[in-house]
Simulated scan of single mutants.
Amino acid sequence: MWILLGILAWAGGSALNVWLARQAPGRTTALAVPLIFGVTLIFVWEAAVRGFGISPVLLPAPSAIAARMAGSTGVLWEDFVQTVIKGALSGYVIGCLAAFGTAIVVDRFDFLRRGLLPVGNFVAALPIIGIAPILVMWFGFDWQSKAAVVVVMVFFPMLVNTVEGLRDTSAMQRDLMRTYAAGYWTTLLKLRLPAAMPFIFNGLKLATTLALIGAIVAEFFGSPIRGMGFRISTSVGLLALDLVWAEIVVAAVAGSAFYGGVALLEKAVTFWHPSQRGQS
C-alpha cells in the first residue's frame, strides 16, 4: 500500500511540476516548483521506509525525524547556538573582515599580492581534518577553537575574491578618475570597491557554506557537551539516527538561510550589475 502511494505521489508531483514549467515564468511558479518537489520527495521517502520496512537505524522516516525534532527542541536550540551562532557566525565575521582589510593592503602594495596569494592558495588547500585538531589544542574545546577553524577556512577564499574584484576595473575607467584628480582612496571608494562588490559577495556566499561545515567538523575533534558536531558523533555511536537527521535538518535550514540572507543583501547592493538585472 505504501509503495503504491509513493509511486502515485511521485507521478502526481512530477506531472504537476511539468505543467507548472510550461506556464509563464513568475515568482509564484519559481517558488512552487521546488516546494512541490520537496514535499513529493519527503512523501516518497516516508512511503519507501514504511513500505520496505527499512530499519530506523539505517534510514529513519521523515515522520520519526519530525517527532524527534519536536521532542528535542531544547537540545537542538542549544546545539544551534553553540555551533552556528558562536562558532560559525563569529568565525565568519572575523575571517571575512580580516580578509577584506588584508585585501585592501595587498592591493595597495603589489609585492604582497605576489607573495601572499600563493600562500593563500596553499593554506586553502589544507584539509580541515588536519588543521582542526591543532586549533582545538591551541584554543581549547569551547567555541573559540571552532571559530578559529572557520577563520582559517573563510579567510583566503574571501581574500582572493576581494583582491580579484579590486583589480576588475578597466584602464579607461582608472584614467577617467585621474582626469578628475582623484587620489588612490577616492578611486578606491568611488570606483574600485563598487566594481568589486560582485566578487566580494561571491566570496561571502562561498564562505557561508565553509563556515558551517568548518564549525561542525571541528566539533568532532573536541567539544563541550553541546554542539551539532558533538551531537552527531555521539548520536551515531548510540544509534540514535533520528537525532542525527534532526541535526542535519537544522544545519541545512541554517545554512540555506545564511546563504539566502547574503544573496538578498547582494541583490540590494549590486542591483546595477548585469547578473542582477531582469531577476524578479
Rank of each mutant, 00 (worst) to 15 (best):
P133C: 00
T209Y: 00
P224G: 12
A47D: 09
T179V: 13
R27L: 11
V75G: 06
L264Q: 07
D107K: 08
L117K: 09
L76T: 09
F139Y: 06
V149T: 01
A66R: 14
V250P: 04
D142T: 05
V244G: 02
K190N: 15
A47V: 05
A70M: 15
V84W: 02
V249W: 06
L58R: 14
E78D: 15
T234S: 13
V150H: 00
F122H: 07
V93C: 04
A240Y: 15
I232L: 02
S256V: 15
G91T: 01
L159D: 04
L59P: 06
V163E: 03
E219M: 02
T179K: 09
A268S: 12
G6A: 01
D107P: 09
A98L: 12
M197Y: 10
A24R: 12
V136T: 11
G203L: 00
V250W: 01
F201L: 03
L41T: 13
W19P: 09
V136F: 08
A240E: 15
V150A: 00
A218H: 01
Y92K: 01
I128P: 05
F201R: 03
S72G: 05
R167Y: 11
R108L: 14
A32E: 04
R22G: 11
P25R: 08
I225E: 15
I200S: 04
L31Y: 05
R68W: 15
I232F: 03
P224F: 10
F156G: 00
V49Q: 07
M177N: 12
V250G: 02
P34D: 05
W19S: 13
G38E: 13
D110T: 15
T102A: 11
F220V: 02
A125C: 05
L59N: 05
R114N: 14
D242N: 09
K86A: 10
R178G: 09
M153D: 01
V244E: 01
V136P: 08
L159I: 04
M158W: 00
G12K: 08
M177D: 11
W272C: 04
V151H: 00
L59Y: 12
L166R: 02
H273W: 05
C96N: 12
I65R: 02
G101R: 08
I129F: 10
I54T: 04
A64W: 14
L204A: 03
A30D: 08
F141N: 11
I7A: 10
G255S: 07
G87A: 08
I65H: 01
F258L: 10
M158E: 00
L112A: 10
Q23R: 09
S14C: 14
M158Q: 03
T102E: 05
G140K: 04
V160R: 03
L193K: 00
A70R: 14
A67K: 15
T169D: 11
E219P: 07
R22L: 10
